[in-house]
Computed example of a mutant assay.
Amino acid sequence: MNPYVLLTFAITGEVFGSSMLKAANGFKKLWPSICVVIGYGTAFYALSLTLKTLPLGISYAIWSGLGTALTTLIGIAVYKEAFNRKKLFGLILIIGGIILLNAAKGGAH
């Protein structure tokens, strides 16, 4: 399977698991807690498969960066968390960092 497809599964699982952490209310709610375990299990399994092909630094940067950005957007959209210029700037920096790391992968080893 294409490593970027696997990485997409890893990111989706991580974002789902992280989003369910809030709904689990400190693991006091059963179904959201189960969703946390499923989400993180999927994320780490798919990430481990991704690492068979893609470099660790690039994979982790994309996984954690996009996961952070998407989880922030879900917090804003679903959990009505505040959005301001500082969050926007932070998201831009995260995405910019991912782009730069990907551009650097073609450089010297």
Rank of each mutant, 00 (worst) to 15 (best):
R85T: 07
L21M: 14
L93H: 04
E81W: 05
L101P: 04
T42Q: 02
L49E: 15
T12G: 05
V37H: 00
G13Q: 08
I34Q: 14
F89N: 13
I95G: 03
L49M: 14
G26E: 15
V36F: 01
C35V: 01
I92W: 05
G17Q: 12
C35L: 12
L21P: 00
I62T: 07
K80H: 13
L100S: 07
G106Y: 09
Y79F: 07
I11S: 01
G107S: 08
A103W: 13
W31T: 13
A10P: 08
L47S: 00
L91N: 09
F83G: 04
I34R: 04
F27Q: 10
G107C: 03
L93C: 06
W63P: 04
Y79H: 07
A77W: 12
L101M: 13
G67T: 02
L21Y: 01
K52I: 05
L91W: 10
M1H: 07
L66E: 09
I94G: 06
I11H: 00
I58A: 12
A10F: 04
T72S: 12
F83A: 11
G97N: 13
T42H: 01
S59D: 14
T53Y: 10
K86R: 11
N2E: 15
N25C: 06
G26C: 06
K52Y: 07
F44C: 00
T68M: 14
T68E: 15
C35T: 04
V37G: 02
T12I: 10
L56D: 15
A24T: 09
K105W: 04
A69W: 05
G17S: 08
G26L: 11
I34H: 02
L91V: 07
I92R: 10
N25E: 15
L6Y: 04
E14I: 02
A46T: 03
G97S: 11
V36G: 00
W31C: 08
A10D: 06
K87C: 05
L100D: 13
K87Q: 13
L91E: 14
F83V: 04
P32V: 08
A69Y: 03
W63N: 03
A77C: 11
L21A: 04
G39W: 00
M20P: 00
L7K: 02
G75D: 06
L54N: 12
N2A: 09
A77N: 14
T50K: 13
T42S: 07
A23V: 05
S48C: 07
L70C: 09
L100G: 03
I38Y: 00
I99V: 10
G67P: 01
K87D: 12
N25K: 14
P55D: 15
V78Q: 14
G65Q: 13
T8M: 12
Y4V: 06
A43K: 01
G107V: 03
I11W: 02
L49W: 08
A43N: 10
A43F: 02
L51F: 05
A103E: 15
L54G: 03
H109V: 06
A46W: 01
T12H: 04
L51K: 12
G90S: 12
Y60W: 10
K29A: 06
V36D: 00
L51S: 10
F83P: 04
A24E: 15
I74V: 12
A23M: 14
V78M: 14
F16N: 03
I92K: 08
V78K: 14
M1V: 05
V78T: 11
V15W: 03
F16D: 01
G13S: 09
C35G: 07
S64G: 10
N2S: 13
H109W: 11
I74M: 12
T42Y: 02
K29C: 05
